[in-house]
Amino acid sequence: MLVVAAAAMVFPFLWQLLTALKTVAESRAVPPVFFPSDLTVDAFARFFDSVPVVGMVGVSAAALVIRVGGQLLICSLAAYGFARMTFPGRNVLFGLFLIMLMAPSQLFLIAQFDLMKSLGLLDTIPAIALPGIFSAFGTFLLRQAFMSVPKEFEEAARLDGANAFQIFWRVMLPMVGPTLAALTVLTALYSWNDLLWPLIITSSKENMTLPVGLATLQGQYGTDYPTLMAGSLLASLPLIAVFIALQRQFFAGIASSGLKG
């Protein structure tokens, strides 16, 4: 069963690879050609020729680092506050977070654009990352993780004289390491693949992210599918690498964290 399901998962990826190796005419063939008649890597060359790949990777990576770093910090603080602290209005405030999660992102386009403009951030890398830092999703995910950590750990640390921040930083954060790793993967993914917001907020070529560059490749008339697939294939490789690196963390991290005992 696992094998069958996995095959269904891998099919689109395989299709991307095969399309990337076709000629443009063959990629439009009806009925579709599955295996290219003669393999060509022209599409990869065209991809590198037509967009500034290195610059785009740099912009995408910078935005990703700001967004992931900012989100992990800000959301884990908030999540811990919501999970373990009592303060007036806690439920109302957490409700606000949930509402933000529930509103479709397209709703915020115009207002967030105006905000970035008044902050003088139009067409900058921080503007690409900023809205994603304040993530209701991340807060929610980490709150669930903090809530399932037994209370004894905090009490032990409190008896040792640690203050709230120390407890959070030294005791609780390591406990939710696997969730942090999972959130890193998911946020990295959203950040890396996000199209509409970066496209709207940036305008110069120097601040073009990978998906924006790929979308730009789709001309007005007709589409060069092999180049598009070659590009998107290359674009997803770094993400897969991040995933492989971090999956060990979040799938295996628990065993050593002491939660077991």
Partner: peptide, 28 residues
């Protein structure tokens, strides 16, 4: 003091939330 600590934890997220999402939502 506990309440203040709790608020301090959620404050950074709250400010971003307000500016980037709640205010736009109200204007919508």
């Amino acid at each position: 003091s506990n309440a203040l600590t709790g608020l301090a934890f959620v404050a950074p997220a709250l400010v971003g939330l307000l500016a980037l999402y709640i205010v736009p939502l109200i204007s919508t």
